[in-house]
Design a protein around this nucleic acid. Structure first.
Lengths: 347, 347
DNA sequence: CTGTTAGCGCGTTCAG
DNA sequence: CTGAACGCGCTAACAG
């Protein structure tokens, strides 16, 4: 029934010293004799002391919790980035306060406020797809809290940005399709005001150009990143166009395309080849297995964590863009008989 | 460059009142005149005031952040439970501090300490698979912090437990296989000291018994919840045993079984029928589509959130076990030609 | 090496 | 209806 939490004052009284000494001892301050330090630690443990980080942060002005805002936590990519972030932050004594924006700018704004109220030491964010203006970040920047953007980023906000090389991913996928014989390649794009989708699209165009294939805008389907829209898109396209390849900016729309093509008795990869993006866990499991671009989410997370820890307490934060490499994983869905085979196992 | 955060004192000075009044006004205290209340709120907004929840919690002894510990955040089930929890907690003004145990009891212990140090108002936990003793929860209970267990639970700790009806799920899956003609059904089990796997196993045994099939322990494979172990298990089993059905406690081992069976040219569901558990996103996508038990993770999350909010501040916490219903989703992998068909679409 | 003093920002008495 | 005073638990000056 000990509702009373042990404080440093309690253990100070117990030992006949002052709270300051206890505080210093627990902080490992060298100016306290080794003997008292050890005694303090022993007594603290004995009495079941739990430091009150609220009081500590309030007094010191520093905080060991970092805020993180992602569109959705139950997406393979984001949950793995989070894991990567925690893998570095937790051992270093930091906590992560995670918020979801649910792809809504209003929730994103609320999350920012909530994190500021919690006096987090830094903020990590990937913007919602709705977010097009960024004035709700002024407060964050004004308070000199390090802000690290990742994946969905904007250069309207200063500070570091960690992103995949989406351009390269788009280019390599498209080039791969071309090398395997595709002449008319459709692209299922996401919202083009979002950097990641814009860059994948740019990579696609670049690869076409380099191969001497003229870009045809009627082969580009906008806002096509879900399974259903992928199915619809491929069905509509095949009515009027002759395509032999699809580069989808998302594995989900690629999957939708595959399912619809099978339904329509179109042979994959024989008649139409398909590649996706993100290397979702299911991509390895569908039939035919889907070629996709691996984003190395966990590694991205570790880099984000290191970056934010570096910048805590610093005055000015460097304005850099860091690229995490991507890797095209070639599977059955995009292979012509005579081509390279690289299979990756998941789980 | 305003490094200084606005406090209630700042806005008090600005208005020529005392901090007390501002504090009361912002709290919506009726004893402050409506006029000053409105003025305070206006000025606060104007000056860009952000309440300091650290100071607030420190003073009031209450906390609006809830801690949550899960084995891994990047598992479909857990990330959806988290989403459900946040869907209720956030609108109510609570924050969620999420920790991962990585299935290690040591990390679980650390997470508990970290949450206690952060003076969370409540703790939500699903135990790691390693956790077999529970004395590290004594401190939590001693401090009268509400503790809600979910999914992986133990009755060695008091308080509410929210779990799926795993027994029912196991029983229905097995019964379904029996009804579809299976006579010798293998079970791929998880660690049996974990409640969820134990109960699925018990449901399996119960269904066999009810159908007059004698239980044969040589058809049970322990510790078989990953894709690889599922593949291995089915291969080894088929060497010595004749089986016509597999009830796996995990979709991953079920998937491994399916892949290996296809490799061995065993026809599914013709010669062997397979069911899994958890309705992972891929289950709908593999070939043949995998029958599985849907756990309603999001709904479980909302119930957890409601429960913990109810119990904050209460003296004694009721000692109940709440069951979240499960639903067997029948797909191709377990159907005999003449049976019910219910397909569920995901994404 | 240790004690003293003074807050961090806020909520809550107790007066008036 | 509002002000004055105090303290939540801790850290950080300044002494000695």
């Amino acid at each position: 029934m000990a509702k009373h939490r042990i404080t440093i004052t309690d253990i100070a009284k117990e030992m006949g010293v002052t709270p300051s000494t206890v505080s210093r001892a627990l902080a490992g301050n060298e100016r306290v004799s080794l003997k008292t330090r050890e005694r303090v630690i022993a007594v603290a443990k004995d009495m079941g002391y739990q430091p009150n980080v609220l009081a500590s942060s309030l007094r010191s002005g520093r905080s060991d919790t970092i805020g993180m805002i992602v569109p959705r936590i139950n997406r393979h990519f984001f949950s793995n980035v989070i894991s990567g972030v925690e893998a570095i932050l937790n051992p270093a004594g930091f906590n992560l306060l995670i918020c979801q924006s649910h792809e809504r700018v209003e929730d994103e704004r609320k999350a920012i406020h909530s994190l500021l109220s919690n006096r987090v030491g830094g903020i990590i964010i990937s913007h919602s797809v709705e977010t097009k203006s960024f004035n709700h970040y002024n407060e964050v920047l004004a308070e000199d809290i390090p802000l690290v953007q990742f994946d969905r980023v904007t250069d309207e906000i200063g500070g570091p940005r960690i992103v995949n090389d989406n351009f390269l991913g788009g280019m390599r996928s498209t080039r791969h399709l071309i090398k395997n014989g595709c002449k008319r390649i459709a692209h299922f794009a996401g919202s083009l005001h979002v950097n990641v989708y814009k860059e994948r699209f740019d990579g696609y165009k670049y690869a076409l150009e380099k191969a001497g294939i003229v870009f045809d805008s009627s082969l580009v389907v906008d806002n096509c990143i879900l399974q259903d829209s992928g199915s619809q898109a491929v069905e509509i396209l095949l009515r009027s166009e002759k395509i032999d390849g699809v580069f989808a900016a998302s594995d989900f729309s690629a999957l939708g395309a595959i399912k619809k093509l099978k339904e329509m008795k179109v042979v994959i990869p024989g008649e139409v080849k398909v590649t996706g993006f993100a290397n979702e866990p299911f991509s390895d499991l569908v039939d035919p297995a889907l070629s996709s671009v691996e984003q190395n989410a966990f590694e991205m997370g570790t880099q984000i964590a290191r970056l934010i820890m570096e910048n805590i307490g610093k005055e000015s934060i460097p304005d850099e863009e860091i690229h995490v490499p991507v890797r095209l994983i070639v599977r059955e869905s995009s292979l012509s008989g005579n081509s390279e085979i690289r299979i990756k196992k998941d789980f």
